[in-house]
């Protein structure tokens, strides 16, 4: 595995269903250690892109690599290098937090699974939830356990699909702090989101997807420089996404 390669790199990555193209040929490079915010209207293709990059879907064309692992030829190694938190993850209701995390740690084949689970719970401040079954948890608590399973195996690239969906402001703030700490440890974060304010605060680069096509990709500094710091992202978003989609 090469460390000088981008964390995520795609060339002409495409997904089509018959006549419908869910993702237009996508060329994207995300550097290691970045927090990348992926913006777009509902149905723009953000979740599809994450599913392609996490090996859950097969692309119709193009190539991609994550953490230096080729999507087409090195899927198992790629899966070892990624963590994934889908939107509205619910986990196993009848298992406790610790049992859920030990299960996913074992599936990831890490050697110090038990110790690592305790470490991750400590890191996310959920040790007090360790022996409670998930069934009794609020959305925010589930999200934290969901994030714990995504990082338990120390992935190089973390994919988050709408991680702030349904969280209260405190939950959003806690999540932001956790992501910043993870990023501080060198983890690359690829985040689909609707929250422009979160992208402005957390991300180092952004991409905007519209109708399956990448219509913007640059660093947050460039965005701020071009549009000014105040509400820069909103200006940008409105300029690249048609009104009809923004209203939707």
């Amino acid at each position: 595995m090469q460390t000088d390669t981008p964390a995520v790199s795609t060339r002409g990555l495409t997904l089509s269903y018959g006549d419908f193209t869910a993702l237009q040929p996508l060329d994207l490079d995300i550097g290691r250690g970045e927090i990348f915010g992926f913006l777009g209207h509902n149905g723009a293709g953000k979740t599809t892109t994450i599913r392609l990059l996490t090996t859950l879907m097969e692309p119709s064309g193009g190539t991609a690599s994550v953490a230096g692992c080729d999507l087409a030829h090195n899927r198992i190694a790629l899966r070892r290098a990624i963590g994934y938190l889908p939107e509205n993850v619910r986990l196993y209701d009848t298992l406790t937090t610790r049992e859920n995390l030990r299960f996913f740690a074992a599936l990831s084949r890490i050697e110090d699974a038990r110790d690592r689970v305790e470490e991750v719970m400590e890191f996310l401040g959920i040790t007090d939830l360790a022996d409670r079954r998930i069934a009794t948890f609020s959305k925010g608590m589930r999200q934290r356990v969901g994030l714990a399973q995504a990082i338990v195996h120390r992935p190089q690239v973390l994919f988050l699909d709408e991680p702030t969906s349904g969280l209260d402001p405190m939950g959003v703030r806690q999540l932001r702090e956790v992501l910043e700490r993870l990023n501080g440890q060198g983890m690359t974060i690829f985040m689909n989101t609707h929250l422009l304010s979160e992208v402005a605060r957390s991300c180092s680069s952004i991409g905007v997807l519209s109708h399956g096509q990448l219509v913007f990709h640059d660093t947050i500094e460039t965005v701020n420089a071009r549009y000014g710091s105040e509400e820069a992202l909103e200006e940008l978003y409105l300029s690249v996404v048609p009104d009809r989609e923004v209203a939707a």
Binding site: R79, I82, Y84, R90, L91, R109
Partner: peptide, 18 residues
């Protein structure tokens, strides 16, 4: 249904296993 409805199917299939 326990794997599909809870999104755990996606979590398992992004782990290093066939």
């Amino acid at each position: 249904v326990e794997e599909r409805g809870r999104q755990t199917l996606a979590l398992i299939l992004t782990r290093p296993l066939s």
